[in-house]
Design a protein around this nucleic acid. Sequence first.
DNA 1: CCCATTGTAATCATATATGATTACAATCAC
DNA 2: GTGATTGTAATCATATATGATTACAATGGG
Lengths: 80, 80
Amino acid sequence: MKNELVLQAFGQHLRRLREARGWSQQALADVADVSKPTIYRLETARYSVTLDVLASLAQGLEIPLSELMQFPVPPRSSAD
Amino acid sequence: MKNELVLQAFGQHLRRLREARGWSQQALADVADVSKPTIYRLETARYSVTLDVLASLAQGLEIPLSELMQFPVPPRSSAD
DNA sequence: CCCATTGTAATCATATATGATTACAATCAC
DNA sequence: GTGATTGTAATCATATATGATTACAATGGG
């Protein structure tokens, strides 16, 4: 799990998208067909996430995958 | 690894981006700082891919992450 | 003709992403 | 104030994503 900053940025982005819809983590987990712990872990940047899950999230959020990936990517740290 | 069609579409997209630059799999692996087997396996849709690696690929290809994710997502099969 | 490069492929080892389950404090409905 | 909901959290088990290594056929350069 290198590139931790990207994961944090994505987590925040995902949370904003979810909250903008007034959904609980459980509700998003349901419509996206992923587990509730996964939602929690992504929003809190505890792990990375696979393209599989990204596609499911986009589908659950009813937005294109490319839009789900439209979040500010922080500059790479000098340590990689 | 559900959502296999998405992985196939991404693999084709990645390959097109790479070949458009005239790069070998090894060359892309180098600039993106991922292994050559990983490039091969992604292009041939053998596995999914983590956001970590996606971010590295985008950086190696010198395009925004959102652009790397701009490929035609096939409709979900009825079997999920 | 060699020799290097390239894409494909398999194997092994390891890290990790995911789900299932459980728990718990805070909040909210009523 | 009791009971359900919510976010957080940990643990266990399992699948899998990734790297390292090796090999091999095809191709291309010289």
